[in-house]
Design a protein around this nucleic acid. Structure first.
Lengths: 335, 335
DNA sequence: TCCGGTTATCGAACCGGTTCGATTTTCATC
DNA sequence: GATGAAAATCGAACCGGTTCGATAACCGGA
């Protein structure tokens, strides 16, 4: 590996001039610039990013920390961020916390140690300790997906209240009254907002919510399955189930299939968030989806802004909330 | 941030002693070790990983390069690698090439620049240039999924011939003769092996393969859809379709649904590789799946071996090939 | 020709560690 | 108490860059 000293020797200038020429070609005479350029080419010099980061105190890497890279929701976001970062000569490091706050914290600290230029974080926790931790980070950052109260950072996400409300309204329009809701962990902002959307829409329609119809699915497949089972074995079954996320809704579909219920014949089903291959699932589930592409674009642009422009870096935190989109399927019938 | 000099000053020893004590506690008197330990605790010293990597010429990071992190196939592998690496104080950086060889190459070079300790690579290309590139890498590495001829590195993957053969045999046993095959890109080892498994099993059963029944699905959803359509509009339709991977098979299912064919009533379907939520897809697709957990475990152990043990590093490249597993569904009927 | 002000280049210190040969200390042995 | 080998510690060089104050070269104007 050729070093900057090799280049300096060959070009017959000092090391500092080479460094200057490479990072700021304008401040060097065209003659020496040429000498240096050809020397660089001759020895095939490429700056060592590690040494650069050490000296500069920051690298050109961007950390992306998510709870589950396999989730297609993160797929578009990752792609957008990667593409945009690449255009601006930055490089995305993906890390997966498996949804565990301790691991997330370790990963973030590791990334900070790597002197990343910026951080895109999908928070996996909440509470004062967690907030304190995130707030203590000095890196330019953008949070997304999960809005955490108390974290004063840019946030990009969807209107989850609206998501819950839209589907509830849809079911009401179809004549459903006995609507069940498989909820997520209430401490999560997305979960509580979706829940609120359901509850308030029901209330404003003057329909009472049967307490037995609201069960906790923890946003996971297994808990969702159990929750769905609890709904389905009730003597007075709901006529429709609204899953607060894709995992619990599909777990409910599985439970329905196993118990021999027809969807939508016996019970209607709808969900928030898409999954891969949803269009080969029978029935096609009616859902509300997030505009992940747009979310990713906003995250990318905002983060790069904060990284590259000192002005933007000084701006106060801002929320970017997108409206979700209704995608009709054939899993809900009129009653 | 406290540096090693702060620790040295407080403990009243030289910087080099601190460094030695921290990396090799045994070679320092217990008295000074104690002094240093308490000094470390007092100032909250944590070594800067960047400076360490620069000085040592290698970091404690492991690069994982895949074509699509969203693919659940990579999910287990990633998880296994991360867990195992963490146990050995290594840290996994995930990068996604989107299946593009140029990007993959850029990513790998970037990771090498970061002086990663090891590389787990799912090759996204083939051909002499590509082979030369991979062979030129001096990092401990393990390739997986796609076996590339000419690359002399450890390889971990599944027996794809067997995968194709098993499903073909299954369909033959059920009485099918007009079996169609939606193939992948033939330059990919996995694709050609699965294809070979199909062809040879048919041959040894004495069943002729109708050339119109072998179509190219490129392992992608869109190409698979088109390929399936070509199969389904033939006057003499196949009675069964074998998808060489999950994407083409599910695309075929979609095509069948859209044309009003019943599966398995009209046409049987089976596939290689699972997808998330396959058990809520109707019908449950009969498939052969890879033991991704085990694959991940082997990749992780082998890579860490090569990284940590000089003996293992010197060993010749080795192939680890696992048998896939048959998972019956209800998408294939007896004819 | 001399002067003041840019502009170009340089040297040295620094980022925060590691490494290794040299020096000092320790301790068992004679 | 002297001797020598082993153990402990140190100093300096190094990894490969950046940065900034200082010096040198250049230029137009008096």
């Amino acid at each position: 590996m050729a070093t900057i000293r090799d280049v300096a020797r060959l070009a017959d200038v000092s090391v500092s001039t080479v460094s200057l020429a490479l990072s700021n070609p304008g401040r060097v005479s065209s003659k020496t610039l040429e000498k240096i350029r050809s020397a660089v080419a001759a020895v095939g010099y490429v700056a060592d990013p590690l040494a650069q980061s050490l000296a500069r105190g920051r690298s050109r890497m961007i950390g992306l920390v998510v709870g589950n890279v396999g989730n297609p929701f993160f797929g578009d976001i990752r792609r957008e961020l990667e593409n945009y970062a690449l255009e601006h000569e930055h490089f995305v490091l993906i890390t997966d916390s498996s949804g565990k706050p301790e691991r997330e914290q370790a990963l973030v600290e590791h990334l900070i140690g790597l002197k990343i230029a910026g951080l895109a974080l999908a928070p996996s926790s909440f509470g004062p300790d967690y907030v304190r931790f995130v707030e203590s980070l000095k890196v330019p950052m953008v949070c997304f997906d999960q809005k955490v109260a108390g974290i004063e950072r840019d946030f990009v996400g969807s209107d989850n209240y609206l998501a819950g409300a839209m589907l509830t309204e849809h079911l009401l329009q179809l004549g459903h009254r006995r609507i069940a809701f498989i909820a997520g962990p209430q401490h999560m902002h997305t979960a509580s907002e979706r829940h609120r959307g359901f509850v308030e829409t029901m209330a404003s329609a003057g329909v009472e919510v049967n307490p037995n119809y609201v069960v906790d699915g923890q946003f996971t497949r297994s808990a969702g399955y159990e929750a769905a089972m609890r709904l389905l074995i009730q003597p007075e079954r709901p006529t429709a189930i609204l899953g607060a996320n894709n995992a619990v809704a599909l777990a409910a579909l599985q439970a329905m299939q196993e118990l021999g219920f027809n969807c939508p014949g016996d019970i209607s089903l709808c969900m928030i968030d898409d999954v891969q291959w949803s269009n080969v699932i029978t029935p096609r589930i009616t859902m509300v989806v997030q505009d992940t592409l747009k979310l990713g674009g906003i995250i990318a642009r905002r983060l790069l802004q904060r990284i590259t422009s000192p002005d933007a870096a000084a701006e106060p935190a801002q929320d970017f909330v997108l409206a979700p989109k209704f995608v009709p399927g054939n899993s809900c019938r009129r009653v």
